[in-house]
Lab assay of single mutants.
Amino acid sequence: PKDEAKKKVKEAIKRGDEETAKRIAKKYNLDWDDAKREADEER
Rank of each mutant, 00 (worst) to 15 (best):
Glu4Gln: 11
Pro1Thr: 15
Arg43Met: 15
Ile13Leu: 14
Ala12Tyr: 13
Asp17Ala: 03
Ala21Leu: 00
Gly16Ser: 02
Tyr28Gln: 02
Glu4Thr: 09
Lys27Ile: 13
Ile13Thr: 01
Arg43Asp: 13
Leu30Thr: 02
Val9Ser: 00
Leu30Trp: 05
Asp40Phe: 12
Lys2Trp: 12
Glu11Gly: 03
Lys10Phe: 14
Lys2Leu: 15
Thr20Tyr: 12
Asp33Gln: 09
Lys14Trp: 15
Thr20Glu: 15
Lys7Asn: 11
Ala25Tyr: 01
Pro1Ser: 15
Lys36Val: 14
Glu18Cys: 15
Glu11Phe: 02
Lys7His: 10
Ala35Tyr: 09
Ala12Asn: 04
Ala35Lys: 02
Asp33Lys: 06
Glu42Pro: 07
Lys8Gln: 14
Lys6Asp: 03
Glu11Leu: 06
Val9Pro: 01
Arg23Pro: 01
Glu19Lys: 11
Ala39Ser: 08
Glu38Gln: 08
Asp34Trp: 08
Glu42Ala: 08
Asp31Asn: 13
Lys22Arg: 14
Glu38Thr: 05
Lys26Tyr: 10
Lys36Met: 11
Lys27Gln: 15
Lys27Cys: 05
Asp40Gly: 08
Ala39Tyr: 12
Lys27Tyr: 14
Lys7Trp: 11
Asp33Pro: 05
Arg23His: 10
Arg37Asn: 07
Glu38His: 04
Arg15Gln: 08
Arg23Ile: 12
Lys7Arg: 13
Lys6Ile: 14
Glu18Gly: 03
Trp32Glu: 01
Thr20Lys: 08
Lys10Glu: 06
Arg23Ser: 12
Lys27Pro: 00
Tyr28Asn: 07
Lys36Ser: 06
Asp33Val: 08
Glu41Ile: 10
Ala39Cys: 04
Ala39Lys: 04
Glu18Leu: 15
Thr20Leu: 15
Asp17Gln: 04
Tyr28Gly: 01
Tyr28Leu: 02
Ala21Ser: 05
Glu11His: 04
Arg15Phe: 05
Asp3Lys: 08
Val9Gln: 00
Asp33Cys: 11
Ala5Thr: 04
Asp17Ser: 02
Lys27Thr: 08
Glu42His: 07
Ile24Met: 08
Thr20Asp: 09
Asp33Met: 11
Asp31Arg: 02
Glu41Met: 13
Glu38Gly: 06
Lys26Phe: 11
Asn29Cys: 09
